[in-house]
Design a protein around this nucleic acid. Structure first.
Lengths: 192, 192, 192, 192
DNA sequence: AATGAATGAGGTTTCATTCAT
DNA sequence: GATGAATGAAACCTCATTCAT
């Protein structure tokens, strides 16, 4: 790894940490460079601005989530299993990247441009889920026909789970995965 | 209404509007006073600081939500009906106060102190719901025993509904109430 | 005069002085406010930026020179007398506003946008002179037909006179006016 | 030519170009090295500072102009011919070195020290001209006795010619030379 | 000789808050 | 009660220069 890459890496690591702790606005570039142990000017060798590094972090999540979903695009298994597996994998990614996830969930609503990224990502997830649920409805496995509302239940649950069980209560990954699985099954029971 | 009260009212109205549009950090005191049509200095006759007025708005929501819940504290009806009625009333309040609700949902994560108010309020709701659900479990009407997880489903759904159907899609109140009722019933079907 | 006007006046006075002494780039906003005896932030109550106040000063000159020329637009006297009177009046204005004139002559070549103002002003003068000279050629009073080149001599002389006799040597206004009158007569003798 | 000389040459060539285009203050050392295709640090192997390379360029012009004048020091021909030949030669040098000339004419007024070089050079030209004109006055060929003022006309004209006809209008060298010759003759006619 | 990553002083600008009127 | 001019701390960012390789 070149010196350059090392320094940029240090900056990104520090930025994740501080943005996640203090939020975008309370984080000063000086906080980041102090934490990274480099000079103020060095920051600007690697990022055009404070906005830019933040956006870079946010895009990293979006891209990763999209990648995960794409892997499931052609899954042709049991609907509920597919859903549980996908949600489980997303949960795991966010779990391993708590800091960046915290940014994604809580820090994007202060910048118009970033909210778009948030909703864009959300839409991507929704589209996948909708497609899946619709198949279920078509097959007759799912009786409740308001697909949008089912999505509301499922996605609302997903976000809440991560916020509460992971971030707030700090439960271990496996436990949260188990809870999530149960939750989804409960929801499916309701709509079947 | 005294002159004083009128001026303070104007400031609060403007603050709600602008905070809701631009978020806490992008809102300048100068924006608020311009919108309210008073001089810069006047702001400080009524509020100690920008932080303070923001907090005041946030507390207004918290208090109102707590009031609503308190009305249901002694309700001794059908569990699901109680829940639906309560959620419906909270929904209505937030619907009538979209600006302040938007602040509550999206703008509190940039200040440590305000997050506490958010979670405090959430806890209040959770406690009520938990109590209710536990009764259901005790009575045997609810079979799935993980109360916390049920709460996750219900509360996650509530937030999502408001975000998506009200704020994003702008559906009329009655329609959203109907959707919410259905959603809660579905969830109950799952856990019964 | 309102407080506001007084403060803005102080800032403009200081800006003229310091820009004229140190040039645009070496002048710091902190220099200007220190000289004006106000706080750093006060500057930005009256001017959007350092660029803006500079441009304001420059436009002041341009506008004044254009005004002077416009007064002579309909002059229908002796050609040489008109020219001498006009140049004399411009000279007097620049003399009374040496600082700002110094800015105009020496500080505009470091900003694309400002060069345009310089050349625009110069063109305005040239057009007037050209028109006048052409009349002379038409009447047969002026024999040398290359009007552009005559303009070169006259305008080059004007600038040089101000630079050397006024700014560098600091001669009194009356004396420079007398010199200028002689110079123009000499030039006219050459082209007649 | 050694490697060293080649690199220094590249830097000087790029510096001329960029300083001439953007002026001293808007030119960044990074612009120069990028244009020259060398590393940032390399610049400082050849020049102590940005100021220094700029000064070096400016001195190059001064020295060259002085050299030209020195060639004419002992010229003992016809006064007007000498003047025309000298001006023509200076014109040609500036014409061939437009970039550096542009720097000399427009970029020296932002640094005290560099203005001195400008005036020093101007003085050198003035002294030569003055001497020549005085001879003419002594011989009685020139009737108008205000030598300084004659110099004002001649030098003002020279600068203006270069600015307007060469830099602004981009006329070919021969044409400008012809115009200049005519102009000087006109001026001489006036003072004779 | 050359590289290019790193430095940090210093500039411009913003804006919550104060205060004389 | 109200005004709005003034304040100044603190943030972001630039870029000439240095230095380890």
């Amino acid at each position: 790894m070149s010196q350059s890459e090392k320094t940029k890496g240090k900056l990104i690591r520090s930025a994740k940490k501080i943005f996640s702790e203090k939020g975008f606005w309370d984080t000063k570039v000086s906080d980041i460079v102090k934490d990274a142990g480099v000079a103020q000017g060095t920051f600007y060798l690697y990022f055009k601005s404070k906005d830019e590094i933040f956006k870079e972090l946010v895009l990293e999540i979006r891209n990763h989530i999209i990648e995960i979903i794409d892997k499931y695009k052609n899954a042709d298994e049991n609907i509920i299993k597919t859903l549980i597996d996908l949600k489980s994998e997303i949960l795991e990614y966010l779990y391993q990247n708590k800091e960046i996830a915290r940014i994604f969930l809580f820090q994007l609503f202060t910048k118009e441009e970033l909210m778009q990224i948030y909703f864009e990502t959300l839409n991507y997830i929704e589209d996948f889920d909708k497609n899946l649920i619709q198949k279920g409805v078509a097959k007759g496995v799912i009786k409740y026909p308001d697909v949008e509302n089912i999505i509301n239940i499922i996605l609302g649950y997903g976000r809440r789970l991560f916020e509460t069980e992971v971030l707030l209560k700090g439960k271990p990954l496996d436990e949260v995965k188990k809870i999530q699985k149960e939750g989804i099954q409960i929801i499916f029971k309701g709509i079947s």
